[in-house]
Amino acid sequence: MIKAADLPQTLAVFPLPGALLLPRSRLPLHIFEPRYLQMIEDALKSGTRLIGMIQPNPMRGKKDALHHIGCAGKITQFSETEDGRFLITLSGASRFRIVEEITGFSPYRKCNVIWDGFDRDLGPEEVDKGFNRHSLMLLLERYFSARGLSTDWDTLKDADDELLINSLSMLLDFKPEDKQALLEAPSLTTRRETLVTLIEFALRGGNSEEMMQ
Rank of each mutant, 00 (worst) to 15 (best):
R109F: 09
L172S: 03
D152F: 09
G70A: 00
D64I: 07
G47E: 08
A65M: 08
F118E: 01
S145H: 10
D158M: 13
G47H: 05
R142L: 10
L168R: 10
A4C: 04
D173W: 07
F144V: 00
F14C: 09
G206T: 02
E209L: 10
L11F: 05
G70D: 02
I40F: 01
S145Y: 07
L203R: 08
A202C: 11
I75G: 02
L11R: 01
A181I: 15
R95G: 02
H67D: 05
D119R: 13
V113E: 00
I54W: 05
L87V: 13
D154V: 06
R35C: 07
E101P: 00
I165Q: 03
F86T: 11
K179H: 08
I31F: 03
D178N: 12
A4F: 05
N57D: 12
R60K: 14
L87N: 15
G73D: 00
I31R: 00
R26L: 13
G61N: 01
T76P: 11
R24F: 06
D178S: 15
F86L: 06
D154R: 14
S94L: 01
L139V: 03
K3M: 15
R109I: 10
D158I: 13
G52P: 14
R60L: 14
G52T: 08
G84W: 01
K62T: 15
N112E: 13
L198D: 07
R142M: 11
G52K: 05
D173I: 06
G52C: 06
V196F: 09
T10Y: 12
L140H: 05
L11C: 09
R192T: 07
Q9N: 12
S150C: 06
I40R: 01
L22S: 03
L29Q: 03
S208W: 10
L136P: 05
S91Y: 13
E177G: 09
